[in-house]
Design a binder for these strands. Structure first.
Lengths: 247, 247
DNA sequence: CGCTAATTTGACCTGGATCAACTACGGTGG
DNA sequence: CCACCGTAGTTGATCCAGGTCAAATTAGCG
């Protein structure tokens, strides 16, 4: 596995370069951040609603999500995160968590002390701006999710989510050829889309029946890319990726 | 009207102080920002999806909202904004808009050139951090809206929205005694909650029937505060207001 | 091979959408 | 002061997307 030998901060660099450009000096500064690498099992809460966190969590491998639980077990997932993401970057300026961060799959993460991040962003305002921008893209994704929840059908919503997850992974080299990992359950999809797991299953069966997708053993294959994009009315600009992806 | 005589940047100072604290030096630096004050009529698009913006828009008076239009007139409102808010602060680092910003009521706004904002945040990293934090609170509100859309009933969702709008206004001194302005239509409420205007109306009628609220001539009166909070399962901590509000 | 979690299917139900009037109200002009 | 008009709010009737409950069936995994 490449991740065993590569520099733990490489996924972060790669992610930032998918959104923006980095100078050699900036890259070097980021690479010198102190990290504590840790392997985590699946379904593990990393930080919980109400916790005061003192580290940021950089994903090296695996999937994480942010979520909140409301009365009697109802769960809402806000976002899915993959290698290179720092899902709790906001804790740098809002240390008390107002939601949970957890692994969905087994994952490898690197913890970076807030102090080191503050020091880095103070010494390099340009890096601070890039991190800030990253949290703004995060918010842009929330807005798109709001559109999906408020004004799109279950079918279109799931189509949209699949497009988003494909693009996010493609941007860091994890997706290719209309095929990408999707290592999450239908219950996770339901909690992210605000649907019931039963209905998610029905929509997936319909998509399969239409020959639109294949979804087996944690792998999504998009067999009818144009139809999927069209159903979702997907416009990748909200992801604010640096490179325009021609598909 | 007080706003005719007071310094145009006072609402911003007041807003920031509801979230954080400002040193005298910081306050002075913010007050010296160049602004172009402008009066706008209601229902006016200030910046549109796709525009490249070169100014930030600070609200001095009135209500604004951010929204996106999807196929055939379906509209999703993401947020409501009041005096002191800079609803397009994100344009500082993501200049191409991925949504619209518009007035809901007649409003007075101050435009601040991006250049001046960049200059300010470079000279005062501490102010940059506070603005960054403000955009993070914005994202926290999006997350709460996602919970409302995904996992709450129409009744609870509207109850939650009323609590939020009351708290936001109270924090800057515009609400008091369970009574606050709500100068928006039921269609606006529908587009914010992902409901139909008809259903919003039915829920409001129910709330009135229960003696929970009064909503007349753009004024919301919360007659049963505890019940409203309870229905909404409202926990104000996601607003990250500096002062704990005891009610 | 056996256990558990995940997916799938069926039957039935309901919250909220849609469509179509109708009413109230804040201007505005005469 | 009133008649008129356009916007916003209200109500009824009907429909359907998606929820709920419960019971298989299948897939992974130790």
């Amino acid at each position: 596995m490449a991740s065993d030998v590569e520099h733990p901060l490489l996924p972060l660099i790669r992610k930032l370069e998918s959104l923006t450009t980095l100078s050699d000096e900036e890259r070097a500064a980021i690479e010198s951040l102190p990290v504590k690498v840790q392997a985590l099992r699946a379904q593990w809460d990393i930080v919980r609603d109400g916790d005061a966190s003192s580290h940021c969590c950089l994903i090296l491998e695996g999937w994480l999500c942010r979520y909140k639980i409301i009365s009697e077990g109802k769960r809402q997932i806000f976002s899915f995160h993959i290698a290179g993401d720092i899902p709790d970057l906001q804790s740098l300026h809002i240390p008390v968590m107002d939601h949970n961060l957890a692994t969905l799959t087994a994952a490898t993460v690197a913890f970076i002390p807030h102090a080191a991040m503050h020091d880095l962003t103070t010494r390099f305002p340009s890096i601070a701006a890039k991190f800030w921008r990253d949290t703004l893209v995060d918010a842009a994704i929330f807005r798109e999710w709001l559109v999906c929840m408020g004004r799109r059908s279950a079918f279109d919503h799931l189509a949209h989510l699949f497009c988003e997850l494909y693009f996010k992974q493609e941007a860091i080299g994890l997706a290719d050829d209309y095929c990408c990992p999707l290592p999450i359950t239908q219950v996770d999809l339901a909690d992210a889309t605000g649907l019931s797991n039963v209905h998610v299953n029905r929509v997936l069966m319909t998509m399969r029946g239409m020959g639109m997708i294949t979804l087996r053993s944690n792998t999504l294959i998009i067999k009818a890319w144009d139809e999927l994009l069209q159903a979702a009315e997907f416009d990748a600009s909200y992801l604010h990726l640096r490179k325009r992806i021609a598909k």
